[in-house]
Computed example of a mutant assay.
Amino acid sequence: MKKKITGQLSNRKLINPRTAPYFFLAPSIVLLIVFTLYPVISSFILSFQSMSGAEKYFVGFDNYARLFRDPIFYKSLGNTFQILIVQVPIMLSIAILIAVGLNSSFIRFNGFFRVAFFLPAITALVAASLIFMVILDGNYGIVNYLLSLVGLDPIDWLNDPFWAKVSVIVVMTWRWTGYNMVIFLAGLQTIPKDLYEAAGIDGAGKARQFFSITIPQLKPVFIFTVVMSTIGTLQLFDEAYILTGGGPNNATMTITLYLYETGFKYFDFGYASALAYVLVVIIAIISWIQMKVVGDS
C-alpha cells in the first residue's frame, strides 16, 4: 500500500505546476515558429538575396534599390491606392447606412436581410468572380443588356482600363459591405437608447441624432473598420487576379498581384520578398496614420 501511494505521488510530480502551462502551450508555440516565425525570417533574409538556378547569393540592398527603378511597381502601387481611396469610403458608407436601417424597428424581417447582406462575405470568391465575369461580359453580359434597354451603349467592363478598375471596386464592395455592416450593427446595439430618447425630447431629428449621437458613439468601430478595410485593400489579390489578371495593360495590377507574379511566374523570389516587406512597411505606416487621425478626431 505504501509503495502504491509513493508511486501516485511521484506521478503527480512529473509535471511541475509552474511549467504545466508551457507544456500545454508547446504544440501551438512549435506550430507558430514553424509556420509563421520561420517563414517571416526566411523571407526577410531572402529579400537580400538573388537566385541563379538553385543557388542563392547575397546582393545586399539591390532588390530594394530596384524598386525605385521599376515602373510596374509604381503602377501597381498607384492602382492599389486608387482602389483604396474610392472603394473603402463607398463600402463603409453603404455599410453604416444598411446597419442603421436594419437596426431600426421600421424594417420587417430584419434577420433575413442581415443574413442576405452578410452572405457575400462567406461566398467562395472564385465562384463569385466567375459569376461577375459572366454578368459583366462585354458581349453577352446582363449589365450591358440592361444598358441597351435604356438606350445606352455597351461597356467593355473587363477590357477597358477605367471600367476594369470599376469592376474590381464593384466586386469588392459587393463582397465586403455586408461584413462591415455586421460590425457596425453590433456597435449600434451597444449605444444606449436613452441618448436617442433625450435627443428626441430636445427636438433633435433623425439626421441630427445620426451625426451627433450615432457617429461619435461608433468611433471605435470606425477605427477598426477603416484600418481593417485599408489593410485588406492594400492586400487586394483575388478579385484582380480572377477578373482581369491585372490587365488591361496593368490597369488593375495591384501590389500583391505583382508580388505573386514576380515570385511564382518569373521565380524572382528575392525581389518578391523585397516587395512583400515594402508592402508591410506601407501598411504599418498607413494604419498608424489612420489610427492617429481617426482616434484624435
Rank of each mutant, 00 (worst) to 15 (best):
V100F: 09
S129K: 01
L119T: 08
D70F: 00
K75D: 01
L77S: 03
I96W: 03
K75W: 00
I122C: 14
P89G: 12
A127Y: 11
N79Y: 04
F112W: 14
V100W: 00
F73R: 01
L102K: 09
A128N: 02
F109K: 15
S104M: 10
L130Y: 10
I107A: 07
I122F: 11
V86W: 04
L119I: 10
Y74V: 01
I90Y: 04
F106E: 06
F68C: 09
A128P: 01
N110Y: 08
K75N: 13
K75R: 15
S129A: 02
I72E: 05
L102N: 12
R69I: 01
I122K: 11
I83Y: 07
G101Y: 05
G101P: 01
L67T: 00
T80Q: 05
Q82T: 11
I85G: 05
I94Q: 03
L92Q: 07
V126H: 07
F81Q: 11
R108H: 14
G111M: 15
R114G: 02
G78R: 11
L125W: 06
L84E: 06
Q87Y: 01
A99Y: 05
A95K: 07
I94D: 03
F118H: 07
D70N: 06
L84W: 12
F81D: 02
D70I: 02
G101D: 03
F117P: 01
I94G: 06
L97P: 00
I94V: 15
A128T: 08
A128M: 11
Q87A: 07
L92H: 03
R114N: 10
Q82V: 13
M91D: 03
I107E: 05
S129F: 04
T123L: 13
S104G: 09
R114A: 04
R114L: 08
A127C: 06
L84T: 05
F113K: 09
V88C: 04
I107N: 09
F117M: 14
F106R: 14
N79T: 12
V115I: 10
N110M: 07
S76K: 02
L102Y: 13
I85W: 05
L102H: 05
N103P: 13
L125E: 15
L130S: 08
F113V: 05
V115L: 14
I98H: 08
M91H: 05
S76F: 01
P71G: 15
F73V: 08
F73D: 01
S129T: 02
F68Q: 12
F118P: 05
L77I: 01
F81W: 07
A95M: 07
V86K: 01
F113L: 04
S93H: 02
S129Q: 00
F81A: 12
F117L: 06
P71Y: 08
G111F: 13
L102D: 13
V100E: 03
G78M: 11
D70S: 04
F112T: 14
Q82R: 09
M91A: 02
S104E: 06
R114Y: 03
L77Q: 02
A121W: 12
F117C: 08
A95V: 09
F73W: 14
K75Y: 01
A99I: 06
I122D: 09
T80A: 13
G101F: 07
